[in-house]
C-alpha cells in the first residue's frame, strides 16, 4: 500500500459501502423488549427530554439524547440501548418509533409532534411560490444532487458537539469528499443547508437570510436532537424548539451528537442515494 508523507498508511473508512458495526459501548436507538416491560414508566420518568412515553411504549428519536438513562432506570432491564445509529428520517413523524424501531402510525396517535413553522415572527419567510415549487421538485432534486452535493453549515445554537462531528466528516478517516460531498463557504454556492442547534432567537434572522441566499432547488437538513426538536434545551425565551420552527426541513438526523456515520447516512438520504430498503446505492462508480 502507498505510504503517506508522514509515514502512515491511509486508513479512510469505507462506510457506507461497507456496513459498520459500532463498538459495544456505543448507545444507539433505545429498544424495548415488550415481554419484560411492566409498564411502570420508570423510563419515561428518568428521561431528561421526555422522549419516552409508556403504554403504549414509544420513543421520539428526535428528542432522544442516547444517554441510556432509560435503560439504567428500568428495573426489569426491558430497555436495551441497541447499536442502531442509522436513524435519519425524511419526516419528523417517522422519528417516533415503537420498541422495535418501527415508526408509529400517525393515524393511531393524534398527539404526535407536528412540525410547524411556529416562529414565523419576522415577516421574512412567506410561504412563497418558490417554496411550494421546491416541494414539487423533490424528485428532481434527487436526480440533481445524486453525485455531488455542496453543503453550507449553519450553527443555530448548538452545544458545539454536532459541529465538531461535522468537522470530523472532513478528516482523513471519514473524508466525505470521497462521496462527492463537500462543504462550501457561501450559501450561494450551496445545495444543502446543514443546520445544527436549537434555532435561537438571536440567530433566527441570520438563518433565514442564509436560507434565502441559497439558490433553488435547496435542501435543509436538521442535525442532532437540538436540530430535530430542541433536544435537551427545548424551547425557552431564547428561542429553540428545533430547526423546523423556522425553516422547512427535508431530512432529520437524530443523535446527540450523531456519529459521523449517522451524518453520512442522513446526507445520503437527502441526496436520494439510498434505495427503498435504505441501503447505499453505488450506481455511479467513477
Amino acid at each position: 500500500m502507498k505510504r503517506s508523507w508522514l509515514g502512515f498508511r491511509p486508513f479512510t473508512s469505507s462506510y457506507p459501502q461497507k456496513k459498520e458495526t459500532p463498538a459495544a459501548a456505543v448507545r444507539g436507538r433505545p429498544a424495548l423488549n415488550l415481554e419484560l416491560c411492566t409498564g411502570d414508566a420508570m423510563c419515561a420518568q428518568n428521561c431528561p427530554t421526555q422522549a419516552i412515553k409508556s403504554s403504549p411504549w414509544r420513543v421520539d428519536l428526535g428528542k432522544c439524547l442516547f444517554c441510556g438513562a432509560c435503560a439504567e432506570a428500568c428495573p426489569e432491564q426491558a430497555i436495551q440501548m441497541s447499536s442502531e445509529f442509522e436513524l435519519a428520517a425524511r419526516y419528523r413523524l417517522n422519528l417516533v418509533v415503537d420498541g422495535t424501531g418501527k415508526p408509529v402510525d400517525p393515524l393511531l396517535s393524534p398527539e404526535l409532534p407536528t412540525p410547524k413553522r411556529s416562529r414565523n415572527l419576522l415577516p421574512m419567510l412567506p410561504e412563497t411560490e418558490l417554496e411550494v415549487l421546491t416541494a414539487t421538485l423533490k424528485s428532481q432534486i434527487t436526480a440533481t444532487f445524486h453525485r455531488s452535493l455542496h453543503i453550507r453549515h449553519l450553527d443555530a445554537g448548538s452545544c458545539n458537539g454536532c459541529d465538531w462531528e461535522l468537522t470530523t466528516l472532513l478528516n482523513p478517516i471519514h473524508d466525505v469528499q470521497r462521496l462527492g460531498i463537500d462543504f462550501v463557504a457561501s450559501p450561494r454556492h450551496a445545495d444543502l443547508l446543514l443546520v445544527t442547534g436549537i434555532m435561537t432567537r438571536n440567530l433566527t434572522l441570520a438563518a433565514i437570510r442564509t436560507y434565502q441566499a441559497m439558490s433553488e432547488p435547496r435542501l435543509v437538513v436538521a442535525v442532532g436532537a437540538c436540530g430535530c426538536s430542541g433536544g435537551i434545551f427545548g424551547a425557552s425565551y431564547a428561542g429553540g424548539g428545533g430547526i423546523d420552527t423556522v425553516l422547512p426541513v427535508d431530512v432529520y438526523i437524530p443523535g446527540c451528537p450523531p456519529r459521523p456515520q449517522a451524518l453520512i447516512y442522513g446526507l445520503l438520504m437527502a441526496m436520494g442515494r439510498l434505495n427503498p430498503s435504505h441501503e447505499f446505492e453505488n450506481k455511479h462508480k467513477d
Binding site: 445554537g157 435561537t200 432567537r201 440567530l203 425557552s236 425565551y237 431564547a238 429553540g240
Partner: peptide
Amino acid sequence: FYTHKGIEKQLEGLSIEQ
C-alpha cells in the same frame, strides 16, 4: 451571544440529576 440558549434559566427548578 448568537447561540444564547437561556441555559441558566432552564436550570432553575430542575432536579440535580436532570
